[in-house]
Design a protein around this nucleic acid. Structure first.
Lengths: 163, 163
DNA sequence: CAAAAACCCATGATAATCCATGTAGTTCCA
DNA sequence: TGGAACTACATGGATTATCATGGGTTTTTG
């Protein structure tokens, strides 16, 4: 599955329409249907989105929990109940539902941030703050140490040298 | 099987008719018959519903229990005895049986909540309370931690890491 | 025959679709 | 290497289709 990369800020018009960055669209298109799945993050004032493959991934993760259990229902209420299936129109735009815009404080601009298997949608100013913190954390906390190479992908390593 | 997503509140008219959200209808339609299976929840004041595929799934789950065991009989009494096959009319509406409306305290509005393989029908105010709790649980109990990537989809994990 | 259920039609609001324009980025040629 | 033509993309506005909802009419059923 191809990864979402980059950061793009587009205008939201009076009807709530926004252009999905072309790069993201082409990825979504290769996944089958021409639409995205979008849900408010339960971690902050932004939206989480992705193509059909992202939806399948969520399905698989949540299906590992018993169908009528309490954790399942709590998560389902968030991941399904709060999410929307949004189709992309002929011009590459989506309409962000009112509640979603409210959750992310999005008024007339939205920032799309590539995030690998999915992408995030932020109010530009809020993302700037998050971004600054993330960069600072990545440096000061030596988070780089968490990033171990995967053997299957990068098998060639002469000897013990790792970090 | 496509998942039910989103949350929609529709009016119940004097005859007990409610529009099934269009998004849900199209999913149900692709499953064959144009009708839904609906039963009162045994966990709370709301209804559980789904398309033909959901019915098949219930059959399979219940058949895994011994046919003459007590759990089987108890669940069968609810899932079969209390459930109804409700057809969707030409305008995309269903009529909720009186007992069902009573069970969920539904008067003049009903909230349809996408829940993956099935969807729930709630009295709007009651769902708002449930939703608030679910959101709080998802955060405070770190339920997000339950959502580990599934290897089949995101194969990149060095070794044994699974749950 | 009465009550209820299924069916048909009309309407306003909302969402999807179509068309036109500006702009930035790229290519190609002089 | 500079500039002109072209292309891809984002964006604005107008038109059309879809959907939820209310009301009426026919058909079934007890």
């Amino acid at each position: 599955m191809e990864s979402f990369r980059g950061r793009f800020t587009n205008k939201v018009d009076a009807k709530g329409r926004v252009s999905v960055p072309a790069k993201f669209r082409t990825i979504v298109n290769t996944q089958g249907l021409n639409g995205i799945i979008c849900s408010p993050s339960f971690k902050g004032a932004y939206l989480e989105a992705g193509g059909p493959a992202y939806g399948t991934m969520l399905d698989q993760m949540i299906n590992r929990l018993g169908m009528f259990t309490e954790p399942h229902d709590d998560l389902a209420a968030v991941l399904y109940g709060e999410s929307h299936d949004i189709s992309i129109d002929g011009d590459g735009r989506i309409v962000l539902p009112e509640e979603m815009r409210a959750h992310a404080n999005i008024a007339d601009e939205a920032t799309f941030v590539g995030f690998g298997a999915r992408f995030l949608i932020w109010e530009p100013g809020a993302y700037e703050i998050f971004r600054t913190k993330a960069l600072a954390n990545a440096q000061s906390k030596s988070l780089g140490d968490l990033l171990q190479p995967v053997n299957a992908v990068m098998p060639v390593r002469p000897s013990g040298g790792d970090a």
